[in-house]
């Protein structure tokens, strides 16, 4: 899952195939990887890819603002669903 997320971020938000430019703890906001609209793209991506639904009250940087945060968030959503 982490690699799927990393590949998505690299290819669609950083526009590169070079994995060294993204650390798993990098904040998407402060690194300028997304702008105020970009978070919508990330939500769309995880909803479509991992079959989860992101609620309004889950739209938080602690859930969505780094690779590690996304992995933890998607795992917890899947655990609840299962």
């Amino acid at each position: 899952m982490k690699n799927t997320i990393r590949d998505y971020i690299l290819g669609n938000l950083l526009f590169t195939e070079d994995p060294s430019v993204l650390q798993d703890d990098d904040s998407f906001l402060t690194q300028g990887i997304i702008d105020s609209t970009g978070v919508l793209e990330i939500i769309l991506f995880i909803e479509e890819t991992f079959g989860i639904k992101v609620n309004d009250d889950e739209m938080l940087p602690t859930n969505l603002d780094s690779v590690n945060n996304l992995v933890d968030f998607v795992r917890s959503k899947q655990a609840v669903a299962a």
Binding site: T30, D35, S36, D56, D57, E58, M59, P61, T62
Partner: peptide, 13 residues
Amino acid sequence: TSSTQAQSYLRNY
């Protein structure tokens, strides 16, 4: 629309 949660993004951005 995202109620109080949006504030975290606003604050960071």
